[in-house]
Amino acid sequence: MAEPLVFHFDVDGSDFTSAGQASVQIKKSLRQLGLPSEIIRRVSIAMYEGEINMVIHANGGVADVIVTEDCVEIILKDQGPGIENVEQAMQEGFSTATSTIHSLGFGAGMGLPNMKRYSDTMEIDTVVGVGTTITMKIFLNQ
C-alpha cells in the first residue's frame, strides 16, 4: 500500500436512526483491505462513537479516514457548539445529552472516553461556537 487510502463521508445530523452508516461502511472497506479484526473493531467503534456524537451534539459533520502502511487516522469535523470544558467532557459519566438521547441508549458520558480507549492517540481541537475537530490514530504495528 504505497499511497494512503482516503475515505470521505458526510454525516447527516438530522436523522439519529441513520447515524453510524459511515462506520459500517469503513468496517467493510477495512475488511476488504484485509486488516486484522482487532484493528478493524477499534477503528469502527471509535468512529461510531464519534459519529453518534456529531449527530447528537453538532447536527452532523464530515468524517475522513486515512489508511497508510502504519496507521488508520480518523478525522471527525463538525461545526457544532464546541466543547466548553474538554477535561470534564473526557470524564466517564459526564454528558450534556438530553433525556431523549438517553432513551435511545446513548448519552451515558462514555462517548469520548470510549473513543480515547479504542484509539492510540486522540486530539481534540475545539472552539466554542465554531466547532470541533477530533483526530484519532490507531497504529497497525502495536
Binding site: 436512526t17 453510524g20 462506520s23 441508549g105 446513548f106
Partner: peptide, 14 residues
Amino acid sequence: LVNPQVIRTAEMMD
C-alpha cells in the same frame, strides 16, 4: 432497547 443503533452497536462489536 429497540432502535436501529442497537443493531449497529452489535455490528461494531462483532
